[in-house]
Design a protein around this nucleic acid. Structure first.
Lengths: 148, 148
DNA sequence: CCAATTCCAACCATATTACTAGGTATTCAT
DNA sequence: ATGAATACCTAGTAATATGGTTGGAATTGG
């Protein structure tokens, strides 16, 4: 049960945007090269993120992407759900729960439900701002110890 | 981020074995038909479960499979890890953490770590016995309300 | 006008998933 | 002893998902 590159690349890229929030648009190739990702592939992810309203784009020269809201108002859950779909371990506990005729009589379903709730609880409680703050802590901790 | 059929089928099948714990071996075709699964495919899952010591087999006619320990000593986590591998959302926080040269300086890694811990916390806290108990509760609740 | 950029749709190679097929080994019941 | 019922094992395979690539059109700052 692994996340695909969509979720992984997407979160990293969004974190980069958060680090430069308020500094104007950042072009895709900058982010792609910083994270050593395929620019064209990342473009597809950003297309998705823009359509759900998490980022804004500026077209043309000097254009690029930026967060559509303050980092404190964007959660990891917002990003992962946009890119990976419903963060449920099995389809029978997704929001658009179509199938599963056995419904509530199913004990394994309760297990999946608890897993889902647990996952979503974590990812909805972490904002991009939290990550930016943590990054600063790590950096200052390294500096005070004289790390490389 | 979904579980594969290995984890889903496997848990269901193990739950069936738990329901009949102490009643001798149950042949594979019985479980397969009860859960409407491919017998040959389920066989592969049981092979894995046997090799990690979660189930025992009895060969020959009147043979079959049974849990190797009491249901209260088998967790959902035991089963899912056997069938799905390390239950980490990304490889950089798996136990045999090989790669990830960025190590502790990586903020996204902290996010994955929290997700992983959260997932494992849930699945390690639920035993097959818990599921059997829940099943009985559901059944008796249905009965007392006069459900179908 | 031109270079830099986003936007968009289609294509493609590879890996993974979820099986199927077909055989061998073992054991119980008769 | 025999045959049916079972577990055990390995290889093959169709479908699907993944992780991109390709090529171009639209937009805009300088």
């Amino acid at each position: 049960m692994k996340l695909s590159t969509r979720g992984r690349y997407g979160l990293k890229a969004m974190f980069q945007l958060a680090l430069h929030y308020g500094q104007g648009p950042i072009p895709l190739n900058v982010i792609a090269s910083q994270q050593e990702l395929s620019e064209n592939y990342l473009e597809q992810l950003f297309s998705t993120l823009r359509k759900v309203g998490l980022i804004k784009s500026v077209r043309g020269a000097q254009g690029g992407y930026m967060l559509a809201k303050h980092p404190k108002n964007i959660t990891v859950g917002n990003i992962l759900r946009a890119l990976e779909g419903d963060m449920a371990p099995v389809y029978c506990v997704t929001d658009d729960n179509s199938s599963c005729h056995r419904e509530e009589k199913c004990v394994t379903r309760l297990v999946w439900k608890r897993m889902k709730d647990s996952i979503n609880n974590v990812i909805d409680s972490i904002t991009l701002q939290d990550m930016v703050d943590e990054q600063k802590e790590i950096e200052s901790a390294n500096k005070s110890v004289g790390g490389v």
